[in-house]
Design a protein around this nucleic acid. Structure first.
Lengths: 207, 207
DNA sequence: GCTCCCCTTGACCATTTGATCAAGAACAAT
DNA sequence: ATTGTTCTTGATCAAATGGTCAAGGGGAGC
């Protein structure tokens, strides 16, 4: 079952290196300007590469964008997947929130890329949303529901709890400009994480 | 102190009517495609108007966009402004969340327009964020802080509480595609509102 | 050194798109 | 009806932009 060579996977070192360079440059540009707003010239310039050369590796602008999204979506699921029924509910959720906040802090560009795609109707990743993502959330909603049934967690809607965690943690990446403007200074990721954990989990303890 | 006629405010009926038509059409297009993604032709088509005619009312594409944002930002502040120190903290916050959820439901396009602008660095509304918005949030953070000091509310960071409310309520407008995909059906605004209120306010009660 | 294939790019093309203009149509005031 | 202003649009332009192409450069195996 070796890969047929019809679509050669990045074999050459130069190819691997250049594709990485392009994707890094593209993340900068796409996350800042969106798909339509970004231009191939901008990406090429940032990758320090001629436009035709860039298009030698990715035939169409859209191909870069899709590759970038796919590259991101995997990391996206992982932290939620780690939510373990056997663990302590509040610790598990706390860890999940922590990891998401750290991801927002470490890679806000990926978060914005994703947000922008969803905001515009998610034309490229509809299947991902309705497939793997839906599946995973369904599983984890069941986990949360069972915690509630076991009296280990206050009764809240599992789906909306997950949405709330997503919404808040992404907020600090996607709306950083607004957060900073309102605070009057660059926000501190550490204190933000503490505050968010407190706000979300305070009400989930069972008396 | 009558308006100097240098920049004639929409006086004619035709002007008022057409500007409204254009702004409505522009909201559809800009919210769906962002500033760069939207084209003047699309807006003109949706407004059932020739492009030159549209540009007779708004000289540049950017002018329509800015007018639309300004038109939106006012409504934006109002619900938060209503947060009253004299009222019951949980009732006040509950009402605020309710209004924000209803706004997301009633006018998701405006929410997306706004989100898109922030996501791209808020080049057009930086002054709004650092001025009126910052000012208002500062006031209301003080209100929340005093509630906490009076023992009427659990001790949470007022700023981050406000961010959390914004993040979650906007999530249902901006990320509706994702929410629907994960749930497997169009989400019900009413139950979402209940769940969100529960999640956010549960932990704020003082024992 | 030779050959073959991978890599790189300047020049170029077709389309899209924001914006202009001149000329005509509708309208209001007298 | 006449006149002057407001409104409307087909035609057009210049710039931006996604993508192509032919030709040259460079490395690896022999």
């Amino acid at each position: 079952m070796s890969q047929p060579q019809t679509k050669p996977v990045p074999n050459t070192r130069i190819q691997a290196r250049n594709k990485e360079t392009i994707l890094a440059a593209a993340l900068d540009v796409f996350s800042a300007s969106g798909f339509r707003g970004a231009t191939v010239d901008q990406i090429a310039a940032r990758a320090e590469m001629s436009k035709p050369n860039l298009l030698y590796y990715f035939r169409r602008k859209e191909d870069i964008y899709v590759a970038l999204l796919e590259h991101t979506l995997t990391d996206w699921l992982e932290p939620l997947r780690a939510l373990d029924h056997a663990g302590d509910p509040l610790s598990e959720l706390s860890r999940y929130i922590k990891v998401k906040m750290e991801m927002s802090d470490a890679n806000p560009k990926a978060s914005r890329l994703f947000a922008n795609e969803i905001l515009h109707g998610a034309p490229m990743i509809e299947k991902f949303l309705k497939g793997p993502l839906k599946q995973l959330v369904s599983e984890k909603a069941t986990v949360i529901q069972s915690w509630i049934a076991e009296g280990k967690l206050a009764p809240v809607d599992p789906y909306h709890l997950i949405f709330a965690i997503w919404a808040i943690t992404q907020h600090y990446a996607d709306f950083a400009v607004q957060v900073d403007a309102v605070l009057g200074h660059r926000f501190d990721p550490r204190s933000a994480q503490n505050a968010v954990t407190e706000i979300l989990l305070r009400g989930l303890r069972t008396a």
